[in-house]
Structures are given as structure tokens and as C-alpha cells.
Amino acid sequence: MEKELIFITVIGRDRKGIVASISNLLYRRNLNIEDIVQKIIKDYFVMAMLVDIKDSKCSFEKLSKDLVELGKRMNLIIQVQHENIFKMMHRI
């Protein structure tokens, strides 16, 4: 079955437990992390996770809301977006 990929972008100050907290939230919803990249861009810690939501146990809306709330608790900005927007904006 074809994958349905989303990007979770995390922006903020680097700290312990960021990957662990997000991974744990995703694991509990039966989601697989396909790839992770991270680096410092202009003093911001920026991380992107590529996640397959094909087998997700919850709706996109709920997942997005939970991740944004997790971000707020950890003082991070978390943005959840379907892969298609990156395909459209960055590939011809």
C-alpha cells in the first residue's frame, strides 16, 4: 500500500527529550518515522521528521492538535503538514 507522508517540523531551543517525546507520541498512534534531519539554522534548532500516517489510529486533525500541544508544553513550535505542499513549493 502506498505511503501517506507528513512532515513534522520542530523549531525552538535545543533540549533533552525532544525526539523522545515526539517519537513516543507517534508510537502510541501506530505511526512510523521514516526519516529525521536536524540542524541549527540562524540560532534556531530545526528538526524535520518524515512520518507515514497510513496506519494512523487517529485523524490528521487530532494528530496535528496533539503535536502542537506537545510543542507548547515543551516551549517549541511544531508544525504538521502533508508532504504534498513541499512537493508543490519546492519541486517542478
Binding site: 523549531i11 534531519v37 530545526v46 524535520a48 508544525q79 503538514q81
Partner: peptide, 11 residues
Amino acid sequence: TFTLDEIYETA
């Protein structure tokens, strides 16, 4: 499939 700079640019 995308660089982190591209993803960050959109965000």
C-alpha cells in the same frame, strides 16, 4: 526527499 532548508523555508 527535501532538504531541511526547504522544509524550514515553508514553515
